[in-house]
Amino acid sequence: MIATHALRREFRRSKRAEPVVAVDGIDLKVDPGEVFGLLGPNGAGKSTTMRMLTTLLPPTSGTAIVAGHDVARERAAVRRRIGFVAQGGGTDSAETARAELVMQGRVFGLSKADALARADELLGRFSLTDAAERRLGTWSGGMRRRLDIAIGLVNSPELLLLDEPTTGLDPASRAEVWAEIRAVRDAGTTILITTHYLEEADELCDRVAIIHKGKVARTGRPDELKSQVAGDGIVVTLPAGRPEAVAPVVREQPWCRGVDEVDAKTLRVYVDDGSRAVTDLLRLLDSLSTPVITLTLTRPSLDDVFLTATGHPLATAGI
């Protein structure tokens, strides 16, 4: 559905200024029917990538085939086959939802009657029928975002591109938007989203590309990416002073991949398979006459993946 090769985009502030590279040779392959996420901090190049894939921005170099057509040479063909929901939406607050949906349908060549029927179908599907004739300026952010998605679907696109679909939404609205996105996927539409929310990538995406400084740092299924990272972690709290004493012994064990003395009472042990290593660790500590006060098993998060891939935690990487 999407295949890019060495996609690159530079921006120049003026003709003589040194170009700033926003996207630095991205290779992506998105298969039909999947939800693919571009995960990265602000300024990583996600939105620029998406704007190139939607034909809004011509690439400086490299190629991108979207829905079977080249984004630089066959812009009209790409535009007919995709739906795009920009970060800030794209509706006029003085208009009504029905008017905006009908406009979108007409722009894609539907007759007046067909556009109206399609508008009503989408209003129903997104539970917006009751508000259809109200000015959008009076709508809540969550409703407006659902309308943005509905507008992106008017032309029954093969591919829906969502730029930061839940940024700025409260948790309840976010869950609603996630449900809508899953429903769109279940109906067979391929989806590309950009996000800087780890849970969003984790919850929603079949595959994720971690974008850092304009490059793809890692690509894969979220669980696959997580299992590539340091494995699981076991955090134990012990009587004061004991972590220092037992750490060297734990480090010797064949199942142990690393040990962190977090503080005087806390030890973090990295292992491949947490559920099996827990018993080994407890047995070992028992044999060292060390009582365990608390024990927590942690699975790696995409944050850990991001950290290993880029050397920065996601939250601070953009700055």
Binding site: A86, G88, G90, Q104, V107, F108
Partner: peptide
């Protein structure tokens, strides 16, 4: 500012 123009730019119009 509202993104209306951009939205219409990604259509065949």
């Amino acid at each position: 500012r509202q993104g209306v123009l951009e939205r219409l730019s990604v259509t065949p119009i």
